[in-house]
Nucleic acid binder design. Structure first.
Lengths: 263, 263
DNA sequence: TCGGCCTGTGAAAATCCTGTAAACCGAGGC
DNA sequence: GCCTCGGTTTACAGGATTTTCACAGGCCGA
């Protein structure tokens, strides 16, 4: 399910041991992580579209409190976890009241840090049910997850839930070839049984409905022996079209990445 | 809305010193607090309409983990803070992954406990920036939260409390498809048990009462396999057959354009 | 070009989901 | 205690959706 979007985390710390160990863990968990040596203007943090920030204010020095306050104030949606050595109760209370979500003492076990980050994010997501994520657009398709439906020129494709989730997954991975097993695993939520053709069947249904409402485009491409790839392409109308015309169109869509997930 | 709605807290612990000190603090902070000597069925916790729960699982003994899991599962909106003596990293990680929001080691300073509870709750409160305002209008429906009632042309629909809350939730999210679990969670206040049909039943009651007073409109639409969507639409009563115009073609393609799951 | 996979299709069979009605239950009011 | 009312559960039927099948047609390497 797409509710498990990968976590984007930034780490502001200069304790190389801690950074190394934690990075290894977050990488293993599939999170996107960025390590920063020192204070970064909150504006840049915004641009990073982070979910969480782990910070040791001592690397900032004097202005630590002010920095924390500014970050928490400017990014109320960001999960902020302080992780630092020696601290007094009143410092922790001050930090928490300032807007910090959790305060961990060093030394600490990286697994606990991860668990605490998850706890912070879990709560935050629950609070903002299906926040942003405006409609996704592809070709003349508009995919609206708040309606569990896709539209072309305002007309609903009338997708069923499975069809919609499949389309959404494909569209999210635009340009990538997804193997059947991977698709099944992510849409159905469990491993695909050997010989199951459900994915193919749903791809067909999707193609039918897409064709019905948006016949001028091709969205789903088959990769023989591998899987499917979503990539909206206007259908080059007549094959008899002037060579030149077709050619140029081709160049526009030519930059396809044929990557095959190493399996 | 006053962001300072008083906090309702329950404390499950038998360490009288801790209980006393903490109670004094929470009282001073103006929180409503209830101390419980041991495990309480989650159902009763629901009835208490708590914001947060501070618990020392050791007072429960063996079933501590199971209890935590049950509570966190049933009340995803409840802030759960574990406060206990001696604990290992793996215990803390297990707890946090289970759904616990914060894990504090005893002995600890009551002020820090308060600050951590606040940090946990802070997230959840920001969730509804929803400025309560005048009556909401949808179709020929007027929803007045000050009266816990909806009206059509001045006539009350005679909604019960649940019916009203359900309608209000739906109307607030006009246009969005809400999943049953989400509806249940927000109206009933705790997690929906698998197989519970309460939402459907109340949707039917609502539809009946809406139909009785406003038969010219359709308000609640069903999204098969997903949930419900509120969107007032005047019912296109007379489908004055678009006449002969495309008659011949129509017969051939007629079965294609109907769609849009109106419910 | 041939044969062995692999994918596209259409439809039947199996499941799942929702609308509806009615039985149940506990809390109050009389 | 008896009755009413709101809320919960349960049972069932009709549909919608998903799965499963069998076969046809296409892609590729030998």
């Amino acid at each position: 399910m797409s509710s498990q979007q990968t976590i984007r985390l930034a780490l502001i710390d200069d304790d190389s041991g801690f950074v190394t160990v934690l990075s290894k863990r977050t990488a293993a968990a599939g999170w996107q992580q960025r390590t920063l040596g020192g204070a970064i203007p909150p504006e840049e943090l915004v641009a990073m579209k982070l979910n969480a920030l782990v910070i040791d204010p001592t690397v900032i020095g004097e202005d630590g409190w002010a920095y924390l306050e500014r970050v928490c104030g400017m990014l109320p949606d960001l999960g902020v976890i302080v992780c630092t050595e020696r601290s007094t109760v009143s410092q922790r209370v001050r930090g928490l009241r300032l807007g910090v979500d959790d305060w961990i003492g060093k030394p600490c076990h990286p697994e606990e840090v991860l668990a605490r980050i998850e706890a912070v994010l879990r709560r935050r997501r629950r609070a903002r049910p299906q926040a942003e994520s405006g409609p996704m657009v592809a070709g003349e398709l508009e995919i609206r997850s708040d309606r569990f439906q896709a539209f072309v020129a305002g007309a609903s494709l009338d997708l069923t839930r499975r069809e919609f989730e499949l389309l959404q997954l494909l569209a999210e991975s635009e340009g990538q070839v997804l193997e059947r097993e991977a698709i099944y695993q992510r849409v159905w939520g469990y491993a695909m049984a050997h010989g199951d053709r459900s994915v193919d069947v749903f791809i067909r249904k999707l193609r039918q409905k897409l064709e019905k409402r948006s016949s001028g485009w091709r969205y789903i491409h088959t990769h023989f022996g591998v899987g499917y790839r979503f990539d909206p392409e206007p259908v080059s109308g007549a094959v008899a079209a002037p060579a030149a015309a077709a050619e140029s169109t081709a160049t526009l869509v030519a930059d396809e990445q044929e990557q095959i997930p190493t399996g």
